[in-house]
Design a protein around this nucleic acid. Structure first.
Ligand code: NAD
Ligand code: NAD
Lengths: 207, 207
DNA sequence: TATATTCTGTGAATAAATTCACCAATTCTT
DNA sequence: AAGAATTGGTGAATTTATTCACAGAATATA
């Protein structure tokens, strides 16, 4: 059965929240609480979950650990996935050193940049390479996800490289939309547009 | 008339693309091209634009400069808006020095952190302050937007501070949803969840 | 034990978003 | 000048998403 992107996104948020609850030792959680935490309604949460057939218990809600395990299995969110970062400027290096990715099942196993200077100067535990070795390293290390943190004008070029290298997904932080074949899942995260949206939304709301 | 969030978000993207085209000196752009650039269909673009009453010209499309001006006016995207960043760690400092915000009409006028050490060590042109002065500075400098880049456990606390300080919008980079009154527009940008979504989406797509 | 409460699951109803179909206007081509 | 092609605008149709309503089940309460 076909899940919508909205549903998948919400389920991912649910998964994240379940992980938190599990750490805290909480045993059960209701659709109402999940809804509050992920910013939607209890109806939507229940509908989403019902599409997956997850079992909830009357007057208790969903069992945190087993439900998390089930989601992890269904969406393969438990196996650790390897990722690389292309563009090691201010944003790229911040991402490189963000150790929380690890515990959420994303392992940054390589960084790439076109500037050899930069590569030599970077202090990090992650291996960094010239971008000319992107294909080689991506394949050798079974990297599944590519994170783009190069300037806008190089973003499409890097998206193409990553595509050729065979990644399954791309997260793009540059402020231009990248085009990749439909088999590759990609998401553009444009901070400037986020600020614009907030501003525009505020203006509309108040007139 | 009421515009949906989807429409507002798309219009913001259109605005961004118009700015690009204007810089390049392009005079007209069709709904089809806009659609390609922002990742939607020409129908949706035309429908969105028709809600705003923007004039398009037969066999030419929309006039880049005047349409951009019109959108800028309607959504007040031309006036420069002041923003601050709270949490000057790896991500916060990357954002602090991102000079492109400026040319898109967002001016970072202050940074805050709880660590006095950090504040003293930071090298940047932007003024940085201890977080205890958040309210004071935000009001003194008419800051409208708050960007949260503190660890998850402090995010809600900072959201509350920003709310009290009277900001109009909040962009939250921590991986927890923050709760603020409905009058304040806010957006959570959770990178980890973005990676999860990409992974989950890929799994679903291939079964 | 009986009754009230609270929770899920899900079909039906409603609402929202997208897509389509096609007219009108303009430009291009021959 | 005639006809073909391209483009926007928009009401209608369709599809998708959300919300509601309520049955069924377990638990709590009296
Ligand atoms: N810094 C931020 O806070 C911020 C905010 C919003 C958006 N962004 C976007 O994120 C991206 C990165 O921003 P940044 O501030 O880190 O930029 P930056 O200029 O600090 O770093 C870019 C890095 O990419 C490298 N690079 C350039 N072309 C390359 C190529 N073809 N292959 C490999 N590496 C290449 C450069 O050597 C540099 O190290 C940009 O697209 C920017 O618009 C950044
Ligand atoms: N670094 C990344 O690439 C990355 C990726 C995904 C998400 N994030 C999220 O962004 C946020 C910041 O990440 P980071 O890597 O920059 O963290 P960091 O630890 O490098 O920096 C956090 C900063 O916040 C300051 N701080 C802590 N509590 C504060 C408070 N109450 N008031 C003011 N300042 C306070 C700290 O002094 C520190 O300077 C986190 O929520 C993180 O989960 C970061």
């Amino acid at each position: 059965m076909e899940l919508s992107d909205n549903t998948i996104e919400r389920i991912c948020k649910v998964f994240g929240h379940l992980a938190l609850l599990e750490k805290k030792g909480v045993e059960f959680v209701s659709s109402k609480e999940l809804a509050e935490q992920i910013g939607t309604t209890e109806y939507t949460v229940r509908k989403d979950i019902s599409l997956l057939g997850g079992p909830g218990y009357t007057r208790k809600g969903y069992e945190v650990s087993s439900f998390k395990r089930e989601l992890g299995q269904k969406f393969q969110l438990t196996k650790s996935r390897k990722a690389c970062i292309v563009g090691l400027g201010r944003l790229g290096t911040a991402l490189l050193d963000y150790e929380n990715f690890q515990e959420d099942g994303f392992e940054i196993v390589a960084g790439f940049d076109c500037s050899v200077n930069k590569i030599e100067r970077i202090r990090t535990n992650i291996d960094v390479f010239p971008v000319s070795r992107l294909q080689e390293i991506t394949q050798a290390r079974s990297i599944e996800l590519g994170i783009i943190a190069v300037p806008a004008e190089s973003a499409q070029e890097i998206a193409d490289e990553l595509t050729k290298a065979g990644v399954k997904g791309i997260l793009n932080f540059s402020p231009v939309k990248v085009n990749v074949p439909a088999r590759i899942v990609h998401l553009d995260m444009d901070f400037t547009n986020a600020l614009r949206f907030i501003a525009a939304r505020f203006v509309m709301q108040n007139k």
